[in-house]
Write a protein that binds this DNA or RNA. Structure first.
Lengths: 98, 98
DNA sequence: TAGTATATATCGGATAACCAATACTACACA
DNA sequence: TGTGTAGTATTGGTTATCCGATATATACTA
């Protein structure tokens, strides 16, 4: 996977994952590991969460569970549209790799 | 689209696009414009093509038409699998943004 | 021939994205 | 009280990714 590593989807994915179920940082890490194959290092995930929080897109409760703010939901929806527009033919991709 | 810009998918997209139809640089640019909304600058697309060519994934004919090499096809397939694994729930995404 | 539009290409740089290493915190349990 | 484990967090980078500006090539047209 030297070429086409597709960096850059991580922040979007975090929003997407949290949007489905609010969870803590470690759980997010495990969920990302399932998808990517490798577990992101703490130095990847916590700064990303911090940034999203700073932007007001996610919030954190007393149990360190992260969830989307109303703004975060809006942003997720808009990013999702963007994503689906770029990959409008993703079903073909699914078919293509069996 | 400040957050979640999703940089990093471009090279993969180029492989995907060329895999469907071989075309020249300008046509690739227009295809990307359709998907992203903005047209990538020449300084984006030609270096990317150069890099892919250098890696032996694409080749260019006398009419400057780019197409996948056998290696490129393999790489596309592998990247595609990677992509589909990361976004295994992409149908939900499609539904989510109407 | 000159002029215009389109396509190709390079260069230098900005910044986003990510990671490894490290340290701190909280909690269980012996 | 001490030890171990899991989770949280920061720091200091490295690198990929992409863009703006600029230049060259090609080709069509007046």
């Amino acid at each position: 996977m030297k070429c086409c590593e597709m960096k850059g989807y991580l922040t979007y994915l975090i929003l997407w994952i949290i949007g489905k179920n609010s969870m803590n940082g470690a759980e997010i890490g495990r969920e990302l590991e399932k998808r990517r194959g490798t577990k992101p290092s703490p130095g990847t995930i916590y700064p990303a969460l911090k940034e999203l929080k700073k932007k007001g897109l996610i919030e954190i409760d007393e149990n360190k569970n992260y969830s989307l703010t109303p703004e975060g939901k809006k942003e997720l929806k808009s990013s999702c549209k963007f994503f689906c527009n770029i990959f409008y033919d993703m079903e073909e991709m699914s078919d293509f790799c069996e």
